[in-house]
Structures are given as structure tokens and as C-alpha cells.
Amino acid sequence: MSDGTKAATFEVKRWQTYVPCKTEYLRGESRSKPFVVDVVEGDRVKVWDPTGGQRMGGHRWIALRNLHETGTTKTGKERRTGFRLHCQPPVDPVRQELCGSCFTWAARDQLAISARGFGHSTCIPCMADIEINS
């Protein structure tokens, strides 16, 4: 940067949510599902998928290099591999829940359905979309 300051470096943190960079979602491909970061350990990250299916709540390790701040490269091209940051960790983990539809952390008063376990709740905007599309 010209003013002598450094740009903030991207940091992978616990409870961040990530979604696939590729535009097409392959049904049933567990490695292409959104996930939540559980542990950052060196050059690898332990993640879990709270959305269900065969790997419900299951953990897996992925390479840290596969996580990106945005869905575009430095040259502006759309990424076709890896995962992009979708949502930062909750501000207040005690009073926020993860919406299982949009993978965004929401305050409990912003939930249409509050359920036990991360990723089982549904936020008000997602519930409205569900009702419209039903």
C-alpha cells in the first residue's frame, strides 16, 4: 500500500463458516458442502458439517491452503476450487445460533426456529424463503 500500512492478513478462525467456491454444487458430494471450522492446527483445519446426511456432525481435515477470504483470485477471476469465507464467528457464542439453511450466525431473537445443536435452527429470512417457495 502506498501509505506504508500493511493490508490485514486473512486469518482462519474457529467457528467461521465456509462455502464451496465452485458455482455448481454436486448433490451428495460431502466434500463440496458448506462447513464450520472447528480447529486450526498448523497447515490443516478440522471442519464439521452440521447440515445432515451421512456425515452429520462428522469431522474431517482439510488443507489450510483450500480456504480463501473471497471467491475470486487476486486477478479477479472466479475460483473454481476450494472454499470461500461465508461468515465470521459469532460475536456472542452463548446468544447466537447457526442457521442450517444460510450458514450465518444469528441472534436467538432472529430465529424463526430455534433447535438444539448448531446448524439445526432456521433464521427468519430463511424461513420466509422456505414459506414462499413451498
Rank of each mutant, 00 (worst) to 15 (best):
M1S: 15
G4C: 12
G4H: 10
T5N: 15
K6D: 07
A8R: 14
F10K: 09
K13R: 06
K13Q: 04
R14I: 07
W15S: 07
Q16M: 08
Y18A: 03
V19K: 06
C21D: 07
C21H: 03
K22C: 10
E24V: 14
E24F: 10
L26F: 14
L26I: 15
R27D: 14
G28M: 11
E29R: 12
S30L: 08
R31W: 05
R31E: 13
S32N: 10
K33I: 10
K33W: 03
V36D: 04
V37R: 02
V37I: 06
V37Q: 01
D38A: 02
V40A: 00
V40L: 00
E41M: 02
R44A: 05
R44H: 01
V45N: 01
K46G: 03
K46S: 06
V47L: 05
W48N: 05
P50E: 03
G53F: 09
Q54C: 13
R55P: 10
M56S: 12
G57E: 06
G57P: 10
H59D: 05
R60N: 04
W61Y: 03
A63K: 08
N66K: 11
L67K: 05
L67H: 03
L67W: 06
H68S: 09
E69L: 11
T70A: 12
T70F: 12
G71R: 15
T72Y: 15
T75Y: 09
E78Q: 14
R80A: 09
Q88D: 12
Q88W: 12
P90V: 00
P93M: 04
P93G: 03
P93L: 02
P93Y: 01
V94C: 06
R95P: 00
Q96T: 12
E97A: 14
E97V: 11
L98Q: 01
L98G: 01
C99D: 07
G100P: 04
G100V: 14
G100Q: 02
G100C: 06
F103Q: 06
A106E: 10
A107Q: 08
R108L: 10
D109V: 09
D109P: 02
Q110C: 12
A115G: 04
A115W: 03
R116N: 06
G117I: 07
F118G: 12
F118S: 11
S121M: 09
I124M: 12
P125Y: 13
A128S: 09
A128R: 08
A128C: 03
D129I: 13
E131S: 06
